[in-house]
């Protein structure tokens, strides 16, 4: 074969991304920057999508997903982090909590764009915690 397409090759390509997604102690700052950036811009994207393509089912599903995406992402990160670095599960919970602050900031920042925005929806952010916290608790018993 002129090039390697083995599972080992594929796994090697994704390994750095998995490291970032699992709050690895070797690349913690980078992990937090990437995670925080995604959580931060989530509501900026959602704000635009909320008032566009009003008849599109796909867009509506996208808006619903983005409403809780940070919570699902953080839950996944906690579980992945616990599977790779179980001793760091309690500390990762603290980082996830900090990300909730970033999520709130991202929503609030939409007020810089236009006055007619809901800003951060604390109700749904709290619903998100009902997704993240169970994942975090599961991560603790991994």
């Amino acid at each position: 074969m002129p090039f390697d397409i083995s599972p080992a090759f594929a796994a090697a390509r994704f390994e750095p991304l998995l490291e970032l997604a699992s709050l690895s102690p070797h690349h913690l700052v980078a992990s937090l920057v990437v995670l925080g950036s995604i959580v931060f811009v989530n509501d900026l994207v959602r704000t635009s999508l909320m008032v566009t393509f009003t008849r599109s089912r796909a867009n509506h599903v996208a808006v619903m997903v983005l409403t809780l995406f940070p919570a699902m992402l953080l839950g996944g990160v906690l579980l992945l982090g616990a599977s790779r670095y179980p001793e760091r599960a309690p500390l990762n919970l603290v980082f996830a909590a900090l990300m909730y602050g970033v999520w709130y900031l991202g929503g609030t920042l939409t007020k810089l764009a236009r006055p007619d925005t809901e800003a951060a929806d604390v109700g749904f952010i709290m619903v998100g915690s009902l997704i993240t916290i169970p994942c975090g608790l599961l991560a603790l018993v991994f």
Binding site: F40, V41, L44, V45, S48, L109, T110, L112, A113, T117
Partner: peptide, 16 residues
């Protein structure tokens, strides 16, 4: 971030 904020401002200005 700046571009996403600008985008949020420009979409549907009639609603604003």
């Amino acid at each position: 971030v700046i571009f996403l904020l600008f985008l949020a401002q420009l979409v549907k200005p009639d609603l604003t």
